[in-house]
Design a protein around this nucleic acid. Structure first.
Lengths: 232, 232
DNA sequence: GCAAAAGTGTTGTAGTTACACCCATGC
DNA sequence: GCATGGGTGTAACTACAACACTTTTGC
């Protein structure tokens, strides 16, 4: 964009950043990707992945740009969470940040890149304290993820191609930090008819073996029923 | 704030605005307050109430500031909706806008001030087309209002001090754009025990008369049950 | 045969819907 | 007395939770 007729209001232009809460699923654990901050203030302390929103760039594009640089991944699921703008939230200066959460499949390509940035995966219970208001941001992202997970089965972007219902239940146990009843969870999920059973079994977890499932292709514009109809 | 160690990144500072979707309840109708835009581009066309976010001001403070200037009201209910940042959303230049919705009680003081600004109340069905992406913003705000209204009784900030259950139901009918069953709605609302029945009746709507109710004072930190436990 | 996870069935409860029905009163 | 909104009652349905039970198979 070349012209901007608002240039007369120049002096109240603001720093705008994005922060990403990155969720991944590895070793049957829901994990969070955290970084050691590269610039002052609080250099070296743990934080979310952040970056400036460039001139003439949308915040979502900015989030995708920093995520791509970091993981090499392009098809990342992103959802906007909230915008934080307290002028004192960042001791380095007044910065407005737009928060997103991202769901990514952890694979080796991504992992190698990630390591180069001194980043680390943490479980929700083992994560360190974060800088500024980032602990709040994580809490907000979790709330949003829970809301989303109660409207649709969220595993599509987190789980591998094929997975057992125990894997999926385990993911939900961790998102909601509670134990779902195995029988009830199975019936609920299968009643939604968004999964397709493969003929192959995972024999690693039990003698009997558990059937693998995969997501049916998602028809454009189609919405599944909410997973939990009650007391969201 | 005096120091800002980010000044080196100066050139990607951004214009940040707030836009407010203002809901009010008047003549038994849920209404939206719209404005004729005062500056170019699209000067004179209908839009939401907007304003710049000043240097070292939070977006919520900015929203309260523009609302106060407009209505003289200080205790406005505000909820952040979403942040829009497509560089082409505003033909005048690249502007990031943080959207809030506001619930206000329409009274005379406020009305007078509002009129001075060439603003007008519209019902959802009669509102004109809005500039830029503001139609989308209204839709988003409505979704958020519906979500909120299904978690708690929203009337506190919209209805007058005393009101009948028919008034409240009528408000909900309009928020959700559907008809609630009078009997079921009554039982549901009363079971939440957040309303107190007054001894006075409203005789204007029926021969029998309908009892007025008012909200019980809200205890700090107390959350009411979700209103609809099923299928939000 | 037994442990252990996979998978199925059963029962009770509570939120919700649809709708019938009574109440009070101004016309 | 009857129309009208106010207000109460009830039966059917459904989602859900709790939990008992069966299946399979490696050890």
């Amino acid at each position: 964009m070349d012209t901007n007729i608002y240039e007369q209001y120049q002096e109240n232009k603001r720093f705008v950043a994005v922060d990403c809460v990155i969720f991944g699923y590895e070793e049957e654990q829901l994990k969070l990707l955290l970084f050691q901050r590269a610039i002052e203030p609080a250099k070296g302390e743990w934080s979310l992945l952040g970056g400036w929103v460039n001139k003439d760039e949308s915040t979502e594009d900015a989030a995708r740009r920093v995520l791509y640089k970091l993981t090499g991944l392009k098809d990342v699921y992103l959802e906007q969470v909230h915008t934080f703008s307290d002028p004192n939230r960042d001791p380095g200066g007044s910065v407005i940040t737009v928060e997103y959460y991202a769901l990514i499949k952890i694979d080796e390509k991504a992992s190698n890149l990630i390591e180069d940035y001194g980043a680390n995966w943490f479980t929700l219970t083992e994560m360190p304290d974060l800088i500024f208001d980032h602990n709040n941001l994580v809490e907000k992202a979790l709330e949003k993820l829970r809301l989303r997970s109660s409207y649709e089965i969220i595993g599509r972007k987190l789980l591998p191609e094929k997975f057992t219902l125990t894997h999926l239940r385990n993911l939900y146990d961790q998102i909601f930090q509670r134990k779902f009843d195995p029988g009830n969870f199975r019936k609920k999920i299968l009643s939604l008819k968004v999964l397709e059973r493969l003929e192959e079994k995972d024999m690693s977890e039990s003698k009997k073996g558990a059937f693998y499932f995969k997501f049916k292709p998602k028809n454009e514009g189609e919405f599944s029923d909410p997973i939990f109809k009650r007391s969201i």
